[in-house]
Design a protein around this nucleic acid. Structure first.
Lengths: 330, 330
DNA sequence: CTGAAAGCGCTTACAG
DNA sequence: CTGAAAGCGCTTACAG
């Protein structure tokens, strides 16, 4: 290449990188040779030399879930104006997650990391740190890593209070199974639920609090069980829209009218929620991804990141699945 | 590193790659040094040396669409057992697409390419070919590249025939805008629609065939216009579920009952479709991604790919949004 | 079984 | 403004 152009390698490099200090005639010669050879510079060699890959890694479990996808979309949007490409690590098991971090903490696969809806172990975080890999957490918090989150306790309380204000006293909660990915929002939403009950002076009924994997199917059978209790709840707060949809299905299949006989509140406000008229707590999914992407880009740009929590706003969106409880007794 | 262990670099490399011909004692020394130094081998250097990156690029426009995401999920599933990582190129504009291919056709960013729901120009394909980059097309066809597709003409015909068999004669079609990404399935579905009408001896009414960008919002207003024609259609076939949902909204907001007064058929069978009971033509979105991934992995494994079309099956899923037309006249 | 050396293809001081 | 040379950190014949 350099030979054909009759110049040194350094000059080719200068031309390729658009440096100023090259004489026009020389530049022309190089450009000509590039054309003649259909020459394509190697990004790998460049990466090795520069120690940068121009890749941002995104680690996300639950890529099968609408909310995770929505966050990834936000990340994609944030990166779209940047020179970085996105490498996606879908880690649907702890094993896959471990492997992903083992690859990433070598430090030369990506220049930075966005970790979504999962919290690496402290050992993993320590290795990422020693690999000098800037990280931003989205939908997970850690005191030593910048993160963008929502206040799940407040969200759980918001949803529950809405039901209480409508007059409900028998309010059930369908949460997630304990955090396989050290993922604690479901627990926080439970706390919010309990706090709302407590503040309203309502008793907590342990059999009204149920957990299951985050799927419509499972939530549907949990809801079915709740609805066949001797004293069934008049309202259900589900820790995610997906689960709320399952609850709606359970009601529908038993001929229970919503919201006349049963109120249902979800969490997230995924796209379907608006379509089916689900009352829910909206969290800015897309925005959280975008914001995380922005923070990381800023860090990559040399501005050091403070390890703080950026708390995104939550909003109760009242639609058609909540109303006053059926008039008790008669 | 090699120094600390008191061995040559080659030996370190052998240990790292688990080659057999290393004496156990030597191996131990190396392993010990690795531990002591917290040594992490560089994948970039390895890539440069080997000429392989262990990365598969996925080019996908419309990552904002549920169907694209579903395909990507299938790809993720296919790669999950492999040693390849996934690099995602969301190309929501022609310009981004051009840039993505310019990066990829250097040939050292990824070892293979999955191109989803878009067809590169011939010039782009030629450059990918000279870069020796194996490609598989998903949801796009090209005679010289292996691809996995569905028969969109047959699908369009299937949906339309269903409506005809129910007794409809005034059937409208909401398609996509002309293919920004050289993306022709909407046109093919239109052809299928027209063919079904023709075979049934029904007249084609040009004002019943409308196009709009693939969004619920746009489809909704198109449907609203169709429904306010002097002689409105009794059935609408939409080229995607997203658009079908828009049509349903239009009907709902005008108090038109579905399916009593209006039948609606979609295309894709995205997750929401089942939930809202939409009759649709199911195409195996997830499967298409998975299959594409498998084909590419096979190619990467040294088995040359024949440039053939793998046609995935289409299936009419009849649910609650289609029925006989309202009994005419009275 | 093991090591010295060349090679992968860039970038970047360092001299001119 | 430009080139020779070293360096980024691996792998792989080639000798021993």
């Amino acid at each position: 290449m350099a030979a054909l152009a009759g110049v040194g390698e350094a000059t080719v490099s200068r031309v390729l990188n658009g440096r100023a200090n090259v004489r026009p005639a020389t530049r022309e010669k190089v450009l000509e040779a590039i054309r003649a050879l259909d020459y394509r510079p190697s990004s790998v060699a460049r990466s090795l030399s520069l120690g940068r890959t121009m890749v941002i890694g995104v680690v996300v479990p639950w890529f099968t879930h609408a909310s995770a996808v929505e966050r990834v979309r936000g990340i994609v949007a944030a990166l779209s104006g940047s020179p970085y490409e996105l490498m996606l690590f879908d880690v649907e098991s702890e094993d896959r997650q471990r492997r992903a971090f083992e690859l990433l903490d070598r430090g030369d696969r990506a220049d930075g990391l966005l970790i979504v809806s999962t919290l690496p172990t402290d050992a993993q975080l320590e290795r990422l740190r020693t690999a000098l890999l800037p990280c931003v957490l989205v939908d997970a918090r850690h005191e030593s890593i910048p993160n963008v989150v929502v206040d799940d306790v407040a969200g759980g309380e918001m949803a529950t209070r809405h039901l209480i204000e409508l007059g409900h006293t028998r309010i059930a909660f369908i949460g997630d199974t304990p955090p396989e990915f050290r993922f604690e929002w479901s627990r926080d939403r439970t706390l919010g639920y309990e706090r709302a009950l407590e503040r309203a002076g309502l008793e907590r009924r342990p059999h009204y609090v149920r957990e299951g994997t985050r799927s419509r199917h499972v939530a549907r059978s949990i809801a079915a069980e709740l609805l066949s209790l001797d004293e069934p709840p008049t309202a259900i707060f589900a820790a995610s829209d997906t689960q709320a949809l399952g609850a709606l299905e359970a009601a529908r299949s038993r001929g229970i009218r919503v919201p006349d006989q049963l109120s249902v509140v979800g969490f997230d406000d995924v796209e379907v929620a608006a379509y089916v008229g689900l009352t829910t707590v909206r969290q800015p999914l897309f925005e959280s991804g975008r914001r995380g992407g922005e923070l990381l880009l800023r860090a990559l740009d040399g501005h050091p990141l403070a390890a703080h929590s950026e708390v995104m706003p939550l909003e109760l969106v009242v639609r058609g699945t909540t109303g006053p409880p059926p008039t008790a007794v008669a």
